[in-house]
Amino acid sequence: MIGAAPILLLIIAWFAATGPLGLIAPLKFPSPAIALASLETIAGPGYASAPLAEHIETSLSLVLAGFAAATLTGIPLGLLLGTSRYANACINPIFQLLRPIAPIAWIPLTILWFGLGGGAKIFVVWLAAFAPAVINTQTAVRGVNRTVIEAAKVHGARRVNLFFDVTIPAALPGIFTGMRLSLQACWMVLVAAELVGAYTGLGHVMIIATEDLDSGMIFVAMLCVAMLGVAMSLLLARLEAWVLPWRR
């Protein structure tokens, strides 16, 4: 685990600034003790109408659903756009037109379409995670080394062999980069989506805690998002190392 030292320093600074030094008022930012108390409250009896586990379950399942949807749709589309000039000419303009609209800007419309349930949030998460998956896959396919393709051709590769033995494996590192960016986008947009309208979830906890002026609880929810995001990224890195043993 690299990066443990800076994080440790940050924690020490936090203790110092909020505790003995009294540099930051508890209302602005919680001290470790306050944060711990908030954690005990939400983990035990619960907060914002549910215990922590339920909030995490809600957020996590929405992220997983949106991420899975984005991966399963974005990667094939990226492969198509990367390999077919025709598809690229047809689809790319639409893509370019919609891209400047921030995924969060879709929230009002999606609430009209899906209501306040999970559907709207999965849709918005999918929307946010879709673009990095498509763009990185497409770029990776375009960037496949030409000499390697030629080597495959002169050794008898037909279209199927070229696609499965050359294009896909050569593009996989780029595809994984896209998945990593997708995953980050998922968490960013999910919390925003839950802020707008939800009954459970970590974003919902933050909104209720703001109304209660409970900085400790806001902090706990933020920390949960950070930890879940890091954990999922680590899992993805494991998967990548397992799928791509040939990378140095």
Binding site: E150, A151, L244, W246
Partner: peptide, 13 residues
């Protein structure tokens, strides 16, 4: 069949 100047092996194989 061709043996290329820059090998052109498949790195993933």
């Amino acid at each position: 069949a061709v043996v290329f100047q820059q090998f052109a092996l498949f790195p993933w194989k």
